[in-house]
């Protein structure tokens, strides 16, 4: 018994989503198509003219040792970040769920790094991790944890670990938030049931906590894996554009450098497309794991 309708529901529904469709079409679908097209061509950076080269750009990905090294760094970067962020994130979430005094304010403060813009994080950590005058080396030496100052940002061997450390600082709060929200929904009597059966804290963790947080952890990892693998800002800004002897050049840095410095738009596009395919594969495994964990939870 609806009254006063000037538009049919059908027209209205389509009008409502049309502007979003246009914007996403122009700035996501079309550019993605262009990237795929570019990856099979030599692109003249000045005229934009395309010369078909078949699979040459993809072959270059496999044969170029620098691109292979970038791939290796990206795998290290993504895996190390995910393992540490999930591990530390779950621990902090459990700590914040213990009903300690002051946990309300603590819950707010631990989220702060997540809101700090990458450029600010990069700046302050460059300052604090300075080899000679940095406060981190000073503090570690005063505490007797190291004998010699560590070259956090100038030793090619240490470059990637330093980047991971800063990124873990910035993004672990994401997992803290989603895991903590889930922990708060676990009914207390579930834990009591395990306690009555004589289970200790370890049993409580594996029997109650773990099964209920695994689905959110997997869902969060699904998003964060993609965004971490493709993260440009933290590696680029913290390493000051790639680090000593290119030791911080992950795939996103390589894409930008190939396209804008080496004028190899075709190879850059092939690298982007190839990485997208690999990540879609990873996404598939996450989805399977997610479905399985949801089933076993329910």
């Amino acid at each position: 018994m609806r009254t006063r309708r000037s538009l049919s529901d059908r027209t209205l529904a389509h009008l409502l989503v049309a502007p979003a469709l246009v914007l996403i079409g122009v700035f996501a679908v079309y550019p993605f198509g262009v990237a795929v097209l570019n990856s099979f061509n030599y692109v003249d950076i000045n005229t934009g003219a395309l010369t078909p080269v078949g699979m040459d750009n993809y072959v270059a990905l496999v044969t170029d040792p620098q691109i292979r090294a970038a791939f290796g760094r990206s795998v290290y970067w993504t895996v190390a970040n995910m393992v540490l962020q999930v591990g530390i994130g779950v621990l902090i979430a459990m700590l914040l769920n213990l009903n300690l005094r002051g946990q309300r304010i603590a819950r707010v403060l631990v989220l702060v790094p997540y809101m700090v813009p990458a450029i600010v994080a990069a700046l302050v950590f460059r300052f604090m991790f300075n080899d000679v005058t940095g406060v981190v080396n000073y503090a570690l030496r005063s505490l007797g944890l190291i004998d010699e100052p560590l070259n956090w940002l100038s030793d090619p061997q240490l470059m990637m670990p330093t980047l991971v450390l800063v990124n873990v600082w910035k993004y672990t709060p994401f997992f803290v938030i989603i895991v903590l929200a889930k922990l708060q929904t676990i009914p207390r009597d579930l834990y009591e049931a395990v306690a009555i059966d004589g289970g200790g804290w370890r049993h409580r963790f594996t029997a109650v906590t773990l099964p209920s947080i695994i689905p959110v952890v997997i869902a969060g990892m699904m998003l964060r894996t993609i965004w971490t693998a493709y993260d440009f800002d933290v590696p680029f800004l913290l390493s000051n554009g790639g680090g000593p002897s290119g030791s911080a050049i992950t795939v996103p840095l390589a894409i930008r450098s190939l396209a804008f410095e080496q004028q190899q738009v075709g190879v850059a596009s092939a690298l982007a497309v190839c990485t997208a395919i690999l990540l879609t594969g990873a996404l598939y495994f996450y989805l399977r794991g997610y479905k399985r964990s949801e089933r076993s939870e329910g």
Partner: peptide
């Protein structure tokens, strides 16, 4: 369909379309 498309676009990282968008 627009909803599903936008979910894909949500997962599309900026670096992937940086070069084409700059060109365009």
């Amino acid at each position: 369909a627009v909803g599903e498309l936008s979910l894909l676009a949500y997962l599309l990282p900026p670096i992937l379309v940086l070069v084409p968008i700059t060109q365009i």
